[in-house]
Every structure is written in structure tokens, then in C-alpha cells.
């Protein structure tokens, strides 16, 4: 039983790790890495929701059996991955521009906007 829940435990650990990185790491790149870890965790969660032991890929054309994994979570994950790539790319390019102008990626120093 424990083994079946393993994906969900992994998801919880990964989300905790990602959020830890986002809250406690001072380097902007590491914050983005933390975000990516959370994103992978959520994607893993979605995929493992639709998984069935021994199920086959949900392609109906000449399928050997109709015991298939759920296709919807996979579609969701695919969309989520695409969005995640766009977000990460944008965040990293922001990091680049910030580094060029501020000369640092330390989040304690990148706070000209406050109060």
C-alpha cells in the first residue's frame, strides 16, 4: 500500500523542497530553480493521478485491451509543461536583465522597490 502512494509522497517532498528554495535561497536563479521543482512536482502529481497499474497507452486504434491509463491528466501535464517552459524562460531572461543593470543576483540587494 505504501508503495502505491510513493508518487504522492514524492510530490509532497518535491513541493516542500521547491518552496523551501523559493523562501530561503537568496540567489534569483535558485529561486527560479525552486519554482521549476514545484512545477515538476505538480506535473508528477497530475500524471500519477491518471496512472493505472498495467494500463496501456490510450490509443484506441487496434489496441490489445481497453485497460488504459487516463489520457486527460497527460494532456493537462503537456499543457502545463509548455506553460512552465515559457515561465522559466521569461524569468531567466529577467534575471539576465537584472544582473546586467544591478550587477548582482542577490535578492537582498534587488529591492529598489519597497515600502
Amino acid at each position: 500500500m505504501m508503495l502505491l502512494n510513493l508518487p504522492y509522497i514524492t510530490v509532497a517532498i518535491l513541493i516542500a523542497m521547491g518552496i523551501y528554495a523559493m523562501v530561503y535561497k537568496r540567489n534569483l536563479i535558485k529561486i527560479v530553480i525552486g519554482l521549476s521543482i514545484v512545477e515538476s512536482a505538480v506535473n508528477l502529481f497530475l500524471v500519477s493521478l491518471g496512472y493505472r497499474r498495467g494500463g496501456i497507452a490510450p490509443i484506441y486504434t487496434s489496441a490489445p485491451s481497453t485497460y488504459m491509463v487516463l489520457p486527460t491528466p497527460q494532456a493537462l501535464t503537456l499543457t502545463s509543461i509548455v506553460i512552465g517552459v515559457a515561465t522559466t524562460a521569461m524569468l531567466l531572461s529577467f534575471c539576465m536583465v537584472i544582473y546586467r543593470n544591478y550587477g548582482t543576483l542577490d535578492s537582498r540587494k534587488i529591492r529598489r522597490l519597497r515600502e
Binding site: 523559493m22 535578492s107 534587488i110 529591492r111 529598489r112 522597490l113 519597497r114 515600502e115
Partner: peptide, 17 residues
């Protein structure tokens, strides 16, 4: 209030979480 508004992105995420 001024103390809370640090402008640090870590704190932004921290408050949300």
C-alpha cells in the same frame, strides 16, 4: 508596516505560503 514591506522576493513567497 515599513518593516513588513521589505521588497525581498523571498518574503513575498513566504507571506503567500
Amino acid at each position: 508596516l515599513r518593516k513588513i514591506h521589505t521588497g525581498n522576493v523571498n518574503d513575498y513567497v513566504g507571506w503567500y505560503v
